[in-house]
Protein backbone atom coordinates (compact mmCIF):
# COMPACT_ATOMS: atom_id res chain seq x y z
CA UNK A 1 0.00 0.00 0.00
CA UNK A 2 2.96 2.24 -0.50
CA UNK A 3 3.13 5.21 1.75
CA UNK A 4 0.88 4.22 4.62
CA UNK A 5 2.63 0.91 5.24
CA UNK A 6 5.79 2.75 6.11
CA UNK A 7 4.00 4.48 8.94
CA UNK A 8 3.81 1.12 10.69
CA UNK A 9 7.56 1.01 10.92
CA UNK A 10 8.80 4.58 11.34
CA UNK A 11 12.43 5.34 12.05
CA UNK A 12 12.38 4.91 15.78
CA UNK A 13 11.17 8.05 17.49
CA UNK A 14 10.25 11.49 16.17
CA UNK A 15 8.06 10.02 13.48
CA UNK A 16 10.53 10.31 10.63
CA UNK A 17 9.65 8.12 7.77
CA UNK A 18 11.27 7.59 4.46
CA UNK A 19 9.13 7.35 1.41
CA UNK A 20 8.74 8.40 -2.13
CA UNK A 21 6.90 11.57 -2.92
CA UNK A 22 5.27 9.61 -5.67
CA UNK A 23 3.70 7.26 -3.16
CA UNK A 24 2.42 10.17 -1.17
CA UNK A 25 0.90 11.75 -4.24
CA UNK A 26 -0.61 8.51 -5.41
CA UNK A 27 -2.05 7.85 -1.99
CA UNK A 28 -3.71 11.22 -2.07
CA UNK A 29 -4.96 10.85 -5.60
CA UNK A 30 -6.34 7.39 -5.15
CA UNK A 31 -8.37 8.35 -2.12
CA UNK A 32 -9.89 11.51 -3.43
CA UNK A 33 -11.31 10.33 -6.70
CA UNK A 34 -13.82 12.78 -7.98
CA UNK A 35 -16.06 11.51 -10.68
CA UNK A 36 -18.14 13.18 -13.32
CA UNK A 37 -21.75 12.62 -12.34
CA UNK A 38 -23.14 11.24 -15.49
CA UNK A 39 -25.91 8.72 -16.00
CA UNK A 40 -26.77 7.00 -19.21
CA UNK A 41 -29.22 4.13 -18.82
CA UNK A 42 -30.40 1.41 -16.47
CA UNK A 43 -26.95 1.06 -14.96
CA UNK A 44 -27.22 4.65 -13.79
CA UNK A 45 -30.08 3.65 -11.49
CA UNK A 46 -27.86 1.08 -9.83
CA UNK A 47 -25.21 3.73 -9.69
CA UNK A 48 -27.66 6.01 -7.89
CA UNK A 49 -28.29 3.21 -5.43
CA UNK A 50 -24.54 2.97 -4.86
CA UNK A 51 -24.54 6.67 -4.11
CA UNK A 52 -27.40 6.50 -1.65
CA UNK A 53 -27.49 5.53 1.98
CA UNK A 54 -27.11 1.78 1.79
CA UNK A 55 -23.86 1.51 -0.14
CA UNK A 56 -22.49 5.00 0.41
CA UNK A 57 -19.94 5.56 -2.32
CA UNK A 58 -18.55 8.64 -0.61
CA UNK A 59 -16.68 6.56 1.95
CA UNK A 60 -14.26 5.73 -0.88
CA UNK A 61 -13.56 9.40 -1.33
CA UNK A 62 -15.64 9.62 -4.47
CA UNK A 63 -17.49 12.88 -4.79
CA UNK A 64 -19.67 13.79 -7.75
CA UNK A 65 -18.66 16.77 -9.84
CA UNK A 66 -21.03 18.18 -12.38
CA UNK A 67 -18.29 19.57 -14.59
CA UNK A 68 -15.77 17.43 -16.48
CA UNK A 69 -13.03 19.94 -15.79
CA UNK A 70 -13.06 19.11 -12.09
CA UNK A 71 -13.34 15.38 -12.43
CA UNK A 72 -10.67 12.70 -12.15
CA UNK A 73 -12.58 9.90 -13.72
CA UNK A 74 -15.73 9.29 -15.67
CA UNK A 75 -18.15 6.43 -15.17
CA UNK A 76 -19.78 5.26 -18.37
CA UNK A 77 -22.90 3.79 -16.80
CA UNK A 78 -25.02 2.35 -19.53
CA UNK A 79 -25.66 1.99 -23.20
CA UNK A 80 -23.73 4.35 -25.44
CA UNK A 81 -25.52 5.17 -28.66
CA UNK A 82 -24.09 6.67 -31.80
CA UNK A 83 -25.78 9.94 -31.02
CA UNK A 84 -24.24 10.03 -27.56
CA UNK A 85 -20.77 8.78 -28.51
CA UNK A 86 -19.60 12.12 -29.83
CA UNK A 87 -20.71 13.88 -26.67
CA UNK A 88 -18.82 11.38 -24.56
CA UNK A 89 -15.67 11.99 -26.56
CA UNK A 90 -16.11 15.72 -25.96
CA UNK A 91 -16.62 15.18 -22.24
CA UNK A 92 -13.59 12.94 -22.05
CA UNK A 93 -11.43 15.44 -23.84
CA UNK A 94 -12.54 18.20 -21.51
CA UNK A 95 -11.32 16.33 -18.46
CA UNK A 96 -7.90 17.26 -17.09
CA UNK A 97 -5.03 14.76 -17.04
CA UNK A 98 -4.56 12.36 -15.37
CA UNK A 99 -7.96 10.92 -16.16
CA UNK A 100 -9.49 7.51 -15.92
CA UNK A 101 -12.50 5.75 -17.38
CA UNK A 102 -14.60 3.18 -15.60
CA UNK A 103 -16.91 1.26 -17.86
CA UNK A 104 -19.95 0.00 -15.98
CA UNK A 105 -22.15 -2.77 -17.31
CA UNK A 106 -22.12 -5.01 -20.34
CA UNK A 107 -23.48 -2.29 -22.57
CA UNK A 108 -20.54 0.00 -22.04
CA UNK A 109 -18.12 -2.94 -22.16
CA UNK A 110 -19.27 -4.50 -25.37
CA UNK A 111 -22.78 -3.49 -26.36
CA UNK A 112 -24.32 -6.02 -23.98
CA UNK A 113 -27.83 -7.13 -24.87
CA UNK A 114 -27.84 -4.74 -27.81
CA UNK A 115 -24.87 -6.40 -29.37
CA UNK A 116 -26.35 -8.10 -32.37
CA UNK A 117 -29.04 -6.03 -34.03
CA UNK A 118 -28.47 -2.67 -32.38
CA UNK A 119 -28.01 -0.47 -35.41
CA UNK A 120 -27.72 2.61 -33.24
CA UNK A 121 -25.67 1.25 -30.35
CA UNK A 122 -21.93 1.62 -29.96
CA UNK A 123 -20.51 -1.85 -29.36
CA UNK A 124 -18.25 -1.01 -26.48
CA UNK A 125 -17.09 2.36 -25.27
CA UNK A 126 -13.48 1.29 -25.85
CA UNK A 127 -14.03 1.90 -29.53
CA UNK A 128 -13.88 5.62 -28.87
CA UNK A 129 -12.07 6.23 -25.56
CA UNK A 130 -9.54 4.16 -23.56
CA UNK A 131 -10.95 2.29 -20.59
CA UNK A 132 -9.15 1.55 -17.31
CA UNK A 133 -11.59 -0.66 -15.44
CA UNK A 134 -14.39 -2.82 -16.78
CA UNK A 135 -17.21 -3.84 -14.44
CA UNK A 136 -19.27 -6.67 -15.91
CA UNK A 137 -22.95 -7.29 -15.20
CA UNK A 138 -26.30 -6.21 -16.48
CA UNK A 139 -26.59 -4.20 -14.31
CA UNK A 140 -23.58 -4.86 -12.06
CA UNK A 141 -24.50 -5.33 -8.45
CA UNK A 142 -23.48 -2.42 -6.24
CA UNK A 143 -20.88 -4.66 -4.63
CA UNK A 144 -19.36 -5.34 -8.02
CA UNK A 145 -19.28 -1.66 -8.76
CA UNK A 146 -17.52 -0.92 -5.48
CA UNK A 147 -15.00 -3.60 -6.38
CA UNK A 148 -14.39 -1.73 -9.61
CA UNK A 149 -13.69 1.43 -7.65
CA UNK A 150 -11.18 -0.42 -5.48
CA UNK A 151 -9.50 -1.78 -8.62
CA UNK A 152 -9.21 1.74 -9.95
CA UNK A 153 -7.66 2.93 -6.72
CA UNK A 154 -5.15 0.10 -6.88
CA UNK A 155 -4.23 1.11 -10.38
CA UNK A 156 -3.74 4.72 -9.38
CA UNK A 157 -1.60 3.62 -6.46
CA UNK A 158 0.85 1.83 -8.70
CA UNK A 159 1.35 4.52 -11.26
CA UNK A 160 4.79 5.98 -11.86
CA UNK A 161 3.69 9.53 -12.43
CA UNK A 162 7.10 11.17 -12.58
CA UNK A 163 8.38 8.76 -15.16
CA UNK A 164 5.30 9.33 -17.18
CA UNK A 165 5.66 13.08 -16.97
CA UNK A 166 9.26 12.89 -18.09
CA UNK A 167 8.25 10.73 -20.99
CA UNK A 168 5.46 13.03 -21.99
CA UNK A 169 7.76 16.03 -21.78
CA UNK A 170 10.17 14.29 -24.10
CA UNK A 171 7.41 13.80 -26.57
CA UNK A 172 6.41 17.41 -26.04
CA UNK A 173 2.93 16.40 -25.05
CA UNK A 174 3.05 18.50 -21.89
CA UNK A 175 5.13 21.45 -20.84
CA UNK A 176 6.99 20.97 -17.59
CA UNK A 177 7.75 24.20 -15.81
CA UNK A 178 11.16 24.52 -14.25
Amino acid sequence: MGFLNRLDDPFNAEGIILGKVEDLLNWGRARSDWYLSFGLACCAIEFMAVNASHFDLMRFGCIPRPSPRQADFIIISGTVTMKMAERIITLYEQMAEPKYVLSMGSCANSGGPYWEHGYHVLKGIDRVIPVDVYVPGCPPKPEAFLDGIVKLQKKINQQAIFKKRAKLAEEEKIIVND
Binding site: M82, A85, E86, G111, W115, E116, Y119, L122, K123, R127, V128
Partner: peptide, 8 residues
Amino acid sequence: YHGVRIPV
Protein backbone atom coordinates in the same frame (compact mmCIF):
# COMPACT_ATOMS: atom_id res chain seq x y z
CA TYR B 1 -21.32 6.86 -38.46
CA HIS B 2 -19.03 9.88 -38.25
CA GLY B 3 -16.01 7.64 -38.49
CA VAL B 4 -17.03 5.15 -35.78
CA ARG B 5 -17.67 1.58 -36.88
CA ILE B 6 -21.12 0.29 -36.01
CA PRO B 7 -21.38 -3.45 -36.75
CA VAL B 8 -19.80 -5.92 -34.33
